[in-house]
Amino acid sequence: MKLKAKDAAEGIMTKKKTVAVYTPESRFRSPWVLLKEMGADSIYGRELAWRLAVRDISAQYRQTALGLIWALILPVANTLVWIFLNGSGIVSVGKTELPYPVYVLTGTMLWAIFMDALNAPLQDTMASKSMLTKINFPKEAIILAGIYKTLFNGSIKVAIMVLALLVLGIYPDWRLALFPLGVLSLIMAGTTLGLALAPIGLLYTDIGKGLPLVMQFLMYVTPVVFPMPSQGWTSVLLKLNPLSSLILTTRDWLTGFSPGYLSLFFWANGILLVSLFVVLLVYRLVMPIIIERMSA
């Protein structure tokens, strides 16, 4: 009883001042407190995230001569390779409704945005090591800043892509208004996957080393540079891949086609939304454990 009275007194104090209590107990044991803290931090972390994003974006281009062009070089190079492979007949890609160069350009650009989002959580957390081991700040800000950066770099890519489409004679229609939704879901997918891998990747560098390999494979089971196969086991595999519907729908919205996998697209987004919340929660819970194992 006495204890309760004391807790109540502390509760009153809480209103005036923040009280932080640290115990070895898993914070999962008090989910309500955890959610409340998470909510408070995501509000306060927003401004910090913005600052961090501005910091990284301005630093990113300050020491380069080519500047923003770097955001394009990789996807454009990739596009040229595939146009060459397809044109020379070394690789034969199925028939696409869009002209192949447009198909592969939009595919690689969207894939590049997805990859940016995917790499951000691990890379940015690694880069914030010195801050993490010395300052207590909302870790979610790192993730949010990563999303801001992906959005920034992504919009440059999109702008160029739209210009290229016009040049190539593809005119987007009203569905272009839905296109940002597609890009956002691609970024959400990348962030979710990257964030899920981050905790283990922060401890073991194997994840960072193996990721490019795995992602290359993933790209070939997603309709990025070739269309959805209509039959065979590959068609099943590609349909099972939730990224397929994201890429296809987004591309269709951009190029003025009616998306063929819309229900899959919404299913994928629903699942992603829930997963993103879960991996964010996990990230928050495990960060102190990772930080103590990080070399400062």
């Binding site: 993490l132 300052i135 102190p288 930080i291």
Partner: peptide
């Protein structure tokens, strides 16, 4: 609050 205690409060 950067790292958690293993015991205590």
């Amino acid at each position: 609050g950067i790292i958690k205690p293993d015991r205590g409060r």
